[in-house]
Computed example of a mutant assay.
Amino acid sequence: MFEVHTFDPKTLSWWFDQLDNIDLDPPYQRRGKLWSDRDRAFLIDSILNGYDVPKVYVADFAFGRAQLNTSGKQYAVIDGKQRLGAIFDFFSNKLRLADNFEWTVNPELRLGGLSYNDLLQNHPKVASRFANFNLSVMRVITDDEGKINELFVRLNRSKPLTGAEVRNAMGGIVPQLIRDLCAHRFFATRIKFSTERRQDQNAAAKLLLVEFRGNPVGTQKPNIDRFVDEGIKAQAGTEEFARAASRCIEVLSRMADIFSERDPLLSSAGPLPVLYWFIRETPPEKDKLIRSFLVKFAKERRDNKLLAKVGGRNVDNELALYDQLDRSTDNQGSIEGRVDILRRRFK
């Protein structure tokens, strides 16, 4: 079953009253906080000044509990999370009107910088205009997880979704395993790079891919997408994928013990497949030596670059090769070459 209907007209205040019954962060969604406060305030400006606001799509689980309804709430946002988040934050006084806000109905009113509570107390007509604005919402009724995922991807096709965001909305076992890996304390506490656009899931997908293949393979987007497709086609025969994830978790546990909290060595996601395979192939009894080795190795690379820049005679060609390979970070040969260099220098 898959049906899309226009929701009966409901005001913003009605939707705010439903806040506890709305899952704003289902698995297929983008992560929040992508809009700046300026963008969010501009949406409130548009509502108060009567401009059109794009449709919001919500899954309605009132007609049966779909597999995708992991939160147990009646509604889950498919498209429009940033809009609803801005609206709810304005109601909650966590967001204010822009300082240069002008209400076209009465430009003489000085409303810039005011919160919703300020409007209620001093300008109730303006507050009422916001609260009673009818948001255009589409109700999606389905018991098919894949249909909701497909709708999310289609609605966002023209938007700059990252590969990880699209991949996260796909079906099969692999996206769920990737999310499980990202819940590991390594990703939760050790990495230092941004995760707002699911960079952690992209990195986790690469680690799961090389573990599943059993050797360092190319981790370019087409390879990861093909891997996700394999998981979809596998259907019942997913044990091999689950075993690879278990092995991956074992290595991530070692990495969590090796690296420190928000480790500067993990400021970029690019080297993770190299570090993962290097640590995977190193005996666990050597784990206590790995971080100090990597710190020393990073310093040697920096010093070697400076030496090469000034035309020094004692340039380390192996370190120069590592830097050259590092430019093609997802290439199979690059990953294998860097792992080999790390192994040799570690010994």
Rank of each mutant, 00 (worst) to 15 (best):
I224E: 06
I224C: 02
I224S: 07
I224W: 02
D225K: 07
R226F: 13
R226P: 00
F227Q: 03
F227N: 03
V228G: 01
D229H: 14
E230T: 03
G231F: 03
I232A: 09
I232R: 10
A234C: 01
A234R: 02
A234E: 07
A236S: 14
A236Y: 13
A236L: 13
G237V: 05
E239C: 01
E239Q: 14
E239V: 11
E240N: 11
E240S: 13
A242D: 11
R243L: 13
R243P: 00
S246N: 10
R247A: 04
R247P: 04
R247F: 02
R247S: 06
I249W: 00
I249Q: 11
E250C: 01
V251S: 05
V251P: 00
V251E: 00
L252M: 06
S253M: 10
S253K: 10
R254W: 03
A256D: 09
D257T: 09
D257Y: 09
I258R: 05
I258W: 02
F259V: 04
F259Q: 03
F259L: 07
F259K: 00
S260A: 13
E261M: 09
E261A: 09
E261S: 10
R262Q: 15
R262S: 15
P264K: 01
L265M: 08
L265W: 06
S267G: 14
S267K: 12
S268M: 14
S268V: 10
S268K: 14
A269R: 10
A269T: 01
A269E: 15
G270I: 09
P271I: 08
P271N: 07
P271T: 09
L272Y: 08
L272Q: 09
L272K: 05
P273L: 11
P273F: 10
P273C: 13
V274P: 03
L275H: 08
L275I: 12
Y276F: 12
Y276Q: 00
Y276S: 04
W277N: 02
W277V: 07
W277H: 04
F278V: 04
I279N: 08
R280S: 03
R280G: 00
E281R: 12
T282N: 09
P283S: 03
P284T: 12
P284N: 08
P284K: 12
P284H: 10
E285M: 10
K286Q: 15
D287M: 07
D287N: 12
D287R: 07
K288H: 13
K288P: 00
L289C: 09
I290L: 07
R291K: 05
R291S: 03
S292K: 14
S292N: 15
S292R: 15
F293A: 09
V295W: 11
K296S: 14
F297Q: 05
F297G: 05
K299H: 13
E300N: 11
E300R: 11
R302F: 15
D303A: 07
D303K: 02
N304R: 04
N304L: 06
N304I: 03
K305W: 11
K305V: 15
K305F: 14
K305P: 02
L306D: 14
L306N: 11
L306I: 13
L307I: 11
L307P: 01
A308Y: 01
A308R: 03
K309T: 13
V310E: 12
V310R: 14
G311H: 04
G311N: 05
G312Q: 06
G312C: 05
N314C: 00
N314D: 15
